[in-house]
Design a protein around this nucleic acid. Sequence first.
DNA 1: GTCTATAGATCGATAGAC
DNA 2: GTCTATCGATCTATAGAC
Lengths: 187, 187
Amino acid sequence: MSKRVSTRTEAVPLIAEVFREHGYEGTSLSLITSATGLGKGSLYNFFPGGKEEMATAVLDHIEAWFAAHIFVPLATAKAPLPAIDAMFVSVEEYFLSGRRVCLVGAFALADTRDQFSSAVRTYFLQWLDSLAKALVRAGHRPAQAKTLSEEIVSEIQGAIILTRALEDPAVFRRALKRLKELTLQPA
Amino acid sequence: MSKRVSTRTEAVPLIAEVFREHGYEGTSLSLITSATGLGKGSLYNFFPGGKEEMATAVLDHIEAWFAAHIFVPLATAKAPLPAIDAMFVSVEEYFLSGRRVCLVGAFALADTRDQFSSAVRTYFLQWLDSLAKALVRAGHRPAQAKTLSEEIVSEIQGAIILTRALEDPAVFRRALKRLKELTLQPA
DNA sequence: GTCTATAGATCGATAGAC
DNA sequence: GTCTATCGATCTATAGAC
């Protein structure tokens, strides 16, 4: 288990995986120690705020990753369709075809939503907004782009749930294929 | 908080709400005591297996409700379209327009999935299967009905996440409206 | 059958040695 | 800066009074 990291930066992705697997309440410092090789001394040195600060750092890290790889390209790329395609590729890889939980979505379901509501809200608003912008540039009407982006983000989240429930990544891949086709049909 | 119930049957729906709000790991017996008015003596009298048996009882109760109100009507009603419409009405009411968590979906995301994988899997398989059957009777081709049922169940789950993340039940209602329209267009 | 008291374990967090 | 030891709180579960 111990990957024996020695910096805060290296620790964050490993801690993220623990939160993804066990949820916020189910994650204990001993699990984090097992995953990182860091004792409590080091953990509280890196994260003086304890478990809550670890979760905040993880959410920040996730949002930064999505911003760099998905949100910004969607919102700014000159060619919208390749950016949308790249989003689907990134999503499939990032979520391991639906086997890997979206931590932000999981936090939205749990009561931790109240604690981290701002980060959860921002993540999804950025995704919806950047995707809608790309869809508009791809020829969709603004109202339709808004609806379509909601449909896409929703179904990605739901497909993760269904994929894990049935333990069948094909569910996730079929969902992405359907959604991708929807983006190609401006009305 | 205390609703002062006095039987196992009355307690199960109240316990279900605690699990929905706090998740499996986040639910403590003291929270359940607060919600039901039952002390630990009564709780262990009704559920000798403790917290795990409470969760199992809740999952059984949920599955029975969905079977009676949604799965069986979908699979057996002579007129499929009214049954599908009734499903959307039931879903909107049951999940309080997306404000109320689907406990089975939440369990599919958490590591409790392993513990309750059979119940989680059965719930979603029944939903997918009964809905696909209704769609076939409504004129969809079998393969299309399977895909469409996956899309509908997935997006209902995802819409709950997005609704809670944005704290906007309109997201859920828009999703249901979109999905309902999809069922009316046999190709 | 339901209560209180409590066991035994684990939680998050802190203190102090080094 | 990282360790071990430990605190106080809380957890699930049990025991025994009534």
